[in-house]
């Protein structure tokens, strides 16, 4: 049964990489069921993240957000700060797709704080870029400028000419 769980996970990932997102969802749902049977929260966390990603490409952004929220809860329970940051970043981008910029800002700020704690300058730069865009969408131009300047500073530091 444990091997079946891992295999469903691998199958889901392969279907995802092939662009078969509906089949990826079916496989990852099976993986999730088996992870729950075993009380394997790390596997459960991976399944929720993979499901969230597949729902993004199915255009089901609300469903993706719910899966990323479960990913975030589990990342916190497992005390995995890097995964917590990634889940916040995914939620920020998903709420941007949903044009809910206030919620997007909440999650991008959470991502920014963790990136700073982890001394992850690339993550920090992405958070500032995202925050600048969300504030622009809301017409908060002063805030947008602040984050654009931070993004520029970090991009120069890490040598990201793009």
């Amino acid at each position: 049964r444990a091997a079946q769980g891992r295999t469903y996970g691998n199958l889901g990932n392969t279907q995802y990489l092939l662009g078969n997102f509906q089949n990826a969802v079916l496989a990852h749902e099976q993986r999730l069921l088996i992870a729950k049977e075993f009380g394997d929260r790390a596997a459960e966390r991976r399944a929720y993240c993979n499901l969230g990603n597949a729902y993004i490409f199915l255009g089901q952004f609300e469903v993706a957000a719910e899966h990323y929220k479960r990913t975030l809860q589990l990342a916190r329970q497992l005390r995995d700060r890097a995964v917590e940051a990634q889940a916040c970043y995914s939620l920020g981008n998903t709420y941007t797709l949903l044009q809910d910029y206030e919620r997007a800002i909440d999650y991008h700020l959470k991502h920014l704080v963790i990136a700073q704690d982890l001394r992850d300058r690339i993550g920090e730069g992405r958070a500032c870029w995202s925050l600048g865009n969300a504030h622009t969408a809301l017409g908060n131009h002063e805030q947008a400028l602040h984050f654009a300047e931070k993004h520029l500073e970090i991009s120069k530091e890490i040598g990201d000419r793009n």
Binding site: G9, N13, Y16, N50, S90, Q99, S130, N133, L138
Partner: peptide
């Protein structure tokens, strides 16, 4: 105040491009 369509947000586009190749491996 939702003036900008999300799909036109370059940071989101970049995230989706990366996401397309990202899987949580067993």
């Amino acid at each position: 105040a939702k003036r900008m369509h999300a799909i036109q947000v370059d940071s989101v586009q970049r995230w989706m491009e990366d996401l397309r190749h990202m899987t949580e491996v067993e």
